[in-house]
Design a protein around this nucleic acid. Sequence first.
DNA 1: TAGCTTTCAGAAAGCCTTTTCGGTCCATTT
DNA 2: AAATGGACCGAAAAGGCTTTCTGAAAGCTA
Lengths: 342, 342
Amino acid sequence: MTQATGPARSHPATLGDVARLAGVSIATASKALNGRSQVRAETRQRVIEAAERLSFRPNQLARGLLAGRTGTVGLLTSDLEGRFSIPILMGAEDAFGAGEVAVFLCDARGDAIREQHHVRALLGRRVDGLIVVGSRTDPRPSLGRELPVPVVYAYAPSDDPADLSIVPDNVDAGRIAVEHLLACGRTRISHITGDPGYLAARDRAEGARAALADAGLDLVGEPRFGAWSEGWGRAATALLLDRHPDLDAVLCGSDQIARGVMDVLRERGHRVPEDVAVMGFDNWQVLTSSSRPPLTSVDMNLEQVGRAAAHALFTAISGVRRSGIEALPCRVVIRGSTAPLS
Amino acid sequence: MTQATGPARSHPATLGDVARLAGVSIATASKALNGRSQVRAETRQRVIEAAERLSFRPNQLARGLLAGRTGTVGLLTSDLEGRFSIPILMGAEDAFGAGEVAVFLCDARGDAIREQHHVRALLGRRVDGLIVVGSRTDPRPSLGRELPVPVVYAYAPSDDPADLSIVPDNVDAGRIAVEHLLACGRTRISHITGDPGYLAARDRAEGARAALADAGLDLVGEPRFGAWSEGWGRAATALLLDRHPDLDAVLCGSDQIARGVMDVLRERGHRVPEDVAVMGFDNWQVLTSSSRPPLTSVDMNLEQVGRAAAHALFTAISGVRRSGIEALPCRVVIRGSTAPLS
DNA sequence: TAGCTTTCAGAAAGCCTTTTCGGTCCATTT
DNA sequence: AAATGGACCGAAAAGGCTTTCTGAAAGCTA
């Protein structure tokens, strides 16, 4: 089924073609199509019809060349595979797509060299701005202050406070998670979480502690840092139950950990949520909704982060710069694994 | 921290700036930088240094305007959320990024209107080609034959056989899955799968049957179509065990189903893989590696699909059209949930 | 020295659109 | 009738780059 047909496809129509067909000059055609006022209604109509007949689409390259703005932005992810980038990317794409901005997607695969390469390529294409999406919430190196276009960092903040970064508020996330458990009447709350090398893990733990302190309480045992996996959830729960068999809630650093926790709780004869409430983080649908019972989880509102980053970039492009780290609130999504203590 | 600084950033350097600094004409500067031959080595060196000093990046807009090719392609997904689009997108981005092609990402969110809008916008930006990524393997409406640029469909084939589509071979996937189970010495194999409205489900079942037939066997019971969920996996397994307590393998239509299947098998006292082998589909890391035991699964090689689509688009742009549906092989990733019958 | 080729640099056209400015035509005013 | 004004249209420049073609200078042969 392979056949060479040569690349010859008739050139897309240009404004000149439209003008010729309508019997006017190029200038008039342009004005007619762009709603400028210096055209008689009848002439405008003729041009519009001609444009339609040729299915004319103005060449954005030429337009961008002239205007100095291209209506494009670069979206630089360090890790497409990771599931956190995707919602952010969706939010940003959504916010831009609604306007007339097109998005160049570049995945650096966590490689600084490749990232640099992509930045240069994007600047060559004269993007109006850049969004840099990290794969974890830990600060990342800035692209530098010398770039000719504005940059907004999303999820992972830049390490240069002069840059603008939009991130989820993990401290607050830990806080609202605990507040939900307290509202359910739980008081003996333990925390099993992931890799302590992740700022997100430390932030959430800090927020959780703060909320407990506000209520005059403390965590049951120290926060247990480990890995973001089900396996760690299971192992940590086993240890935890040996030491503190009386706990009535476990706040988990991720939904995966929570799954492991629930498995061991059930195996050991603790009912969820009657005896022990369990909460996860990330609100990862496939895990939260198919577990038994469905898992209450903190959603980081990542789409919102993406949208906010896009919006910030927009305003930066039009001249209003901000800087610093802006933290967006998270939200608790309540499901069956937490319920008021009866 | 908000401060208005005005959009005034010094214009990026143009070829004219470079030429002036090097003391040559614009034409010479262009030739020097592009490795054309009509420049003395010494002059070329001077130009290159000047370009470096100004960190000159040729304006791709201007270049594209002139060349008629922009070095950009559109990547049109119908559903970014779905996890199948992502690896395809990664593969394509990877294949293009290696060349000098930039990718416009557009998510139509499953809406035909929005898709049409994006196509028009992309054509306005004079992309050299389009890749359309579907969210399921069922055929989707063609964008039409009248587009001025080549189009390649990935994952979901176009319903017009004149288009080129690159898809995973689900029939073969069902076949190799069963062949693996047979190689493990299993002969009483059952199939629990997802929504029968999905071509993928029907294709896999067909492939599985064909492989069994080749071995002179048949499925234990009819394939059980249902949903792609853990819940369905659990429910179907319960029914299945009642009717056929002697089975020694379950082939599942997805990793989620497989997880549910394994849960119920374990609860009913069947050991995996000693008594019953379990296989999933999709090779979704988070499910396969954290289940107990880790799940053997069929990987659809989606990155490969993306790369192949990118490559096909490349060759189409340079004039060699293909058409029809090209199915790429899948592969079995063996983990603990399948093992030779001892 | 005249005439040739070779080597290298620059002028200019072209890609497609927007916008400014000047010009034409007609209707109105003095 | 002449002058003014408004409505409409087109010529031309600009934006940054590539490419072709013209030109000039140098090196070579006869």
